[in-house]
Structure formats: structure tokens, C-alpha cells
Nucleic acid binder design. Structure first.
Lengths: 346, 346
DNA sequence: GTGAAAGCGCTAACAG
DNA sequence: CTGTTAGCGCTTTCAC
């Protein structure tokens, strides 16, 4: 738009450049009437400071990065990420900072991107999606001096700030719910166990089974990849073990698995009960409506930005750990409602 | 990372700052051996130029923006956008520029964001998703001097560069395909007709019907909103008119509609044939697999970035219009395969 | 409280 | 081909 500079505003307001700068950065030590006069000129002219100049002088870029490592960038097929991104973008708007999006697709990408984003002064901070165990990027990034908030528990938690939900507890509760419905042959479709989220949700399943005196059966546990197709395939294998309930570590896998159950001529929840994880919009629309663990995805993203901004303002020590709450949303796929009806009748 | 400056590199390489700058910007007029020497020092030190300083001096930010107006930011529930974003992000990596993400959620967002992103020097260019008719942002943005590529045909096409698929033709072909299967009572679920994409896909339907001598019936045309739930609702209404085929303007709406058909106790494609639009990953996984118009979404995004970069390098005149090809992917929901079987038998 | 002045780290004429 | 020099538009001491 305009090419106005601080100097122009200063001239028009009859003050010096420094004063205008002070007003813009809402510092103290500016007389009230002067401040108002400057503000008025800024308003009238539609002046906005040049970000590059400001960044150069202040050593802050007013930009944070959202970094999705290679191992998750294919996850973009999972509606989880768009939702997350939306929450993050909204929070950035609120904070008046810009959001840089860095999707690492290939190893070459990673090598090119890493030096660029880790250059001091380029990003004020970053949000890094927790990736897979063998993902080097995560570790390289975390060892930087830039403030970082990891989305999801990282493998290395020392000195790192991160935000997560209590995956173990949430999964424990989900599986417990299935067991309480009288299901005994409870199987699970896990996420990749090379990721903490895959690991933690599996852990919740294992603990629930053990705690309720049920035997673990390795043929009731299938690892998959957080995709619909993966869920379908995993379910086909699980069918052999004749489960009467399945806890899927994500809604999208639950959907694929239910499709497999349907294709096998079995019914949900009568033959096999289901609980998913995420509570994405389509969960309530599936056939039958999916009982699932609700995650506050959008809020999760917003909170992550808030924490990051705090770290940027106040320094990264001590590191912060935020665990957000989940909630089991009971719909039709777990058979609980149906069971209640039956219990009433008898 | 490091705090090296051009000056440091210059000193180590025994040259002046300008020479290093020339090497970095791969300009000519540097002797081969000098260039190599400088390059080696850069390599050894892991030096990366300070973007803010570079931006200030060169008046280029090396960042482009992806702007999703309010009317589409809710569309983020549509897997189309993540795919598109992925293509765009990849192309940005290739071009060594950073991608700023600007989601406009509320009117306040819009008012805050607009001056910020339109400030000269902040963005080298932007990709703006074509929004709804009454969306002011689109027009405001397009009237800026910043290079812009609109994603999807804008309402005002004069002097604006944009990239799109031939929605009218693609829809025409899709509907023609249904008619060729012997369907006569073909209905459509359109996108919002306040958007060009909704308008164009409807236009293709209308033309196909007319051109094949079929009468238009307003109760066979339902406007919806590109959501699964919207598709379901629209289909419920359409059912009254007893259609034998439906062209849905997006896969996600087709999915919702097929769910409604299923709930009504009818079969796809026997009772009602379906063709969708997008060819998102789940299209091949639906029950039955969805016949749909394949859009090269990711390539679309990449191409958009390429065009924008060209505009940035070479000026925005003349404006460019790129129309990408689509392709009808025949699966099971349209009944064509089934019909072929039958035709063989008789 | 306010202004002058010195950079922030780079690019881009301009000399040579 | 290479170096010198003058900014880019802001922040931030340091005087006053």
C-alpha cells in the first residue's frame, strides 16, 4: 500500500521518529497528548511499519513457524492437521504475528529447510509436530536456541516444552468403557509405534486390559498408520481373532475398520463394538455414529501458540508441559446405548 | 544458529562484502576461483544471510502469502484445502521462499489482516483463494499492486491472473456420462452459487441436460455447501423428485448424499447413480467406490506458485490465465461397469 | 518526555 | 571483475 515511513509520520505529527516508534511499540514515556496526536496521524494515513526494517533493528521477525516433519507431512490426509492448523492460525492473528508454514516432504527439503529456519532471527519461535522416533529433524530442531513448543510428546522430553493430551489415560478410559459393556475380546488398532502418540494410546489399551484381568493376545493388537485404508487392512487381520470390540487409535482408522467389519458381513456394535480417537466432525456422521475420545484440537493449537509466545517473551526456562483434557463421547458404535435399553427391559 | 554476517565471510575469504553478496545471489562478474573460495567458506561456516536485512535492502521479503478468505476458511473441513496447501508448500520449498498462511476467520481478522498483508514489502506476492461473491476481501486484495494469483476463477476477472480447472466442461462431461448410462432423471447437488466454482459446476450440469434434450426440473437441483452433512440434507430433499442419478459438485457432498440414499433404503448405483468431483483419496474407498472428476489438486497448487513467482520476477502484465485439465475417473457409483456387464450378457 | 545518532546486515549503484 | 559507499526503515541507547 503506502510507502510511508516513521519519518513521514513524525514530520506530520511534529515529533521525532523516536517518539513515533515509542507510540507504535506502546512504550511509556510519551506525553498523553503527544501520543494521541501521533496515533491520529497513524490512523489517518493508514501507516503500518515496515516489518523487515523492524525485524532487522529489533532482532525479532514477528513470525513463528509451524514445522511438520517428513514423517507427518503425509498425515495431511488426516483431518486432524487442518483443524490444528486452523487453531494455530487463529491464535497467530490474535497475537498479530505471522505464521510460516514449513512442510518437510523429502530428505532434500529437510536439508534445505533446516538451516533456513534455524537461522537466528528468522523465526521468533516454532511449533514442531512431534514426529517419528527415527526422525532426525525433531531432535535437530529441539537442540536449537530458538523457543520451541513441540506438538505432542517428543521422544526426548528433557528441557523441552511441549503440549499434549493424556493419551494413556484417554485410551485407558476408552478401553475400560468397552470392557464395562461386557466385551472381553477387545482388540486395538494402534498408530505407528514409532511415534509417541501411537505408543501412548497402545499403552492405555494394555493397562486397561491388564487392570481388568483380561489376557493380552497379540493377535488382537494390530499396528497401523492413521489412514482409512490402513484401518481397513488392520481390521481384516484382526477379524481372524474374532474380537467383540475394537479400540482404534484414530477416528479415521476406526472408519476404515468399520468398513472392513461391514464388508465381512458383521454388524457394529452388535458383533463388534467400536471406540475411536479424535472426535473429528465426521465421527458423528458415520454409520453407526462413532463413540470416540474428544480432543480439543483447535484449542490445542491455540494454546500451543500462547505458550510459545510466552516463551518468546519470557525466555524458555523453565520448560513448560501442558496436558489438555479429553472426553469420551458416547455415541452408537460402542453399544452402550443399546445395552442400556436392554438393561431397562430386563 | 550462527550470528555470522556477510562481513565475516568476506574477511575469511579475503574479499569484500559485495563479492560475497554477489556469490550468494549468484550474479555474474565474479571470477570463478574467487566464487569457489567464497562458496567454500560459506559451506564451512554454515552461513545463511539474514532475511530481514536482505528484505530491507532488496525490498523483497522472499515470502508469499496464502490467503484463505472468511467464506472459505470453514472449508478447511474439506480435504481439498490440505491437499492444495501441500502442493503450495512444496513449490515454495523448491523456490526457496517462505509460505505465510493467513486464515481469515472473522470480520475483525479481516480488518486487522488486510493492512498488514497489503503493506508494500511485506509479501512478494500472494495466492488468494477465490471466495464468495459478497466477499469484499477478494476484491480489496486484487486491487493491490502486489502480484496476485487467484486460486479458482474470481468474479472480477479483468486484469487478474488466476488458475482454475474447466469446471463447466468437467461437469458437462460428468453429467453426460450419467445420461449415456441411460439415466434420465439426473439431479445435482451444487456448491454455493455465491461462488464461481458452485456456479460453473452447475452450469455444466445445465448444459449437459439441455444438450441431451432432457428437461430441467428445479426440484432436481439442490444447492448445498460442500460439506458431508450438507450433501446428506440436500439428498433427502432430492429424493422426493425420484432421481435416478446425481451429480454432486464435490466428493464430500457425494458421500453425504450416498449416505442419505442408503438410509432411505435405496441402492447405489442400481437405484441412483453417482458422480462426484475432486477425486480425493477417500473417493476410491467409499461404498461403492465413487466415480468422480479427478482434479490435480497438488499440481494445481504447485503451478499457482510457479505462476506467481513468474509474475514477481517479470511483472504482473499481462495477466495470466491457466486452466488445468481434469479427468473423469470411472469407478462403481455411476453404474457404468455394471451396465457394461449387462450389455455383454444380452 | 523527547530528539539525535548509531547501528541492525544486507543490496546496489558507482568507481575503479 | 572487485571494493567503497550509501542507504533500506526501523529500534535503541544516550544526551538533554
Amino acid at each position: 500500500m503506502s510507502n510511508l515511513t516513521l519519518e513521514d509520520i513524525a514530520k506530520r505529527a511534529g515529533v521525532s521518529r523516536s517518539t513515533v516508534s515509542r507510540v507504535i511499540n506502546s512504550q511509556q514515556y510519551v506525553r498523553q497528548d503527544v501520543r494521541e496526536r501521533v496515533l491520529r496521524v497513524i490512523e489517518e494515513t493508514g501507516f503500518h511499519p515496515n516489518i523487515a526494517a523492524r525485524a532487522l533493528a529489533s532482532q525479532r521477525s514477528w513470525m513463528i513457524g509451524l514445522v511438520l516433519p517428513r514423517s507427518v507431512s503425509s498425515f495431511f490426509g488426516d483431518p486432524y492437521f487442518p483443524r490444528l492448523t486452523q487453531g494455530i492460525a487463529q491464535a497467530c492473528n490474535r497475537h498479530n504475528i505471522t505464521l510460516g508454514l514449513f512442510l518437510v516432504s523429502t530428505p532434500e527439503d529437510e536439508n534445505k529447510l533446516f538451516p533456513r529456519i534455524s537461522r537466528k532471527g528468522f523465526l521468533d519461535g516454532m511449533l514442531v509436530q512431534s514426529g517419528e522416533m527415527n526422525d532426525q529433524l525433531n531432535e535437530r530442531l529441539v537442540n536449537l536456541t530458538v523457543p520451541i513448543v513441540v506438538l505432542g510428546r517428543p521422544f526426548q522430553t528433557n528441557e523441552v516444552s511441549y503440549i499434549d493430551v493424556d493419551n494413556v489415560k484417554a485410551s485407558f478410559d476408552a478401553v475400560t468403557h468397552l470392557i464395562r459393556q461386557g466385551r472381553r475380546n477387545v482388540g486395538t488398532i494402534t498408530g505407528p509405534t514409532s511415534s509417541t502418540v501411537g505408543l501412548d494410546r497402545k499403552e492405555g489399551y494394555l493397562r486397561a486390559m491388564l487392570e481388568h484381568g483380561l489376557e493380552l493376545n497379540s493377535s488382537l493388537i494390530m499396528e497401523s498408520d492413521f489412514t482409512e485404508a490402513g484401518g481397513y487392512l488392520a481390521m481384516q487381520e484382526l477379524l481372524v481373532a474374532k474380537p467383540d470390540a475394537i479400540f482404534a487409535a484414530s477416528d479415521i482408522m476406526a472408519l476404515g475398520a468399520m468398513r472392513a467389519v461391514h464388508d465381512a458381513g458383521l454388524r457394529v456394535p452388535e458383533d463388534i463394538a467400536f471406540v475411536g480417537f479424535d472426535d473429528l466432525p465426521f465421527a458423528s456422521l458415520s454409520q453407526p455414529a462413532l463413540t470416540t475420545v474428544h480432543q480439543p484440537i483447535s484449542k490445542f493449537g491455540e494454546k500451543a501458540v500462547d505458550i510459545l509466545m510466552e516463551l518468546i517473551e519470557n525466555g524458555t526456562k523453565p520448560s513448560r508441559r501442558i496436558i489438555m483434557d479429553t472426553e469420551l463421547v458416547i455415541r452408537d458404535s460402542c453399544g452402550a446405548k443399546q445395552k442400556m435399553e436392554m438393561d431397562k427391559e430386563t
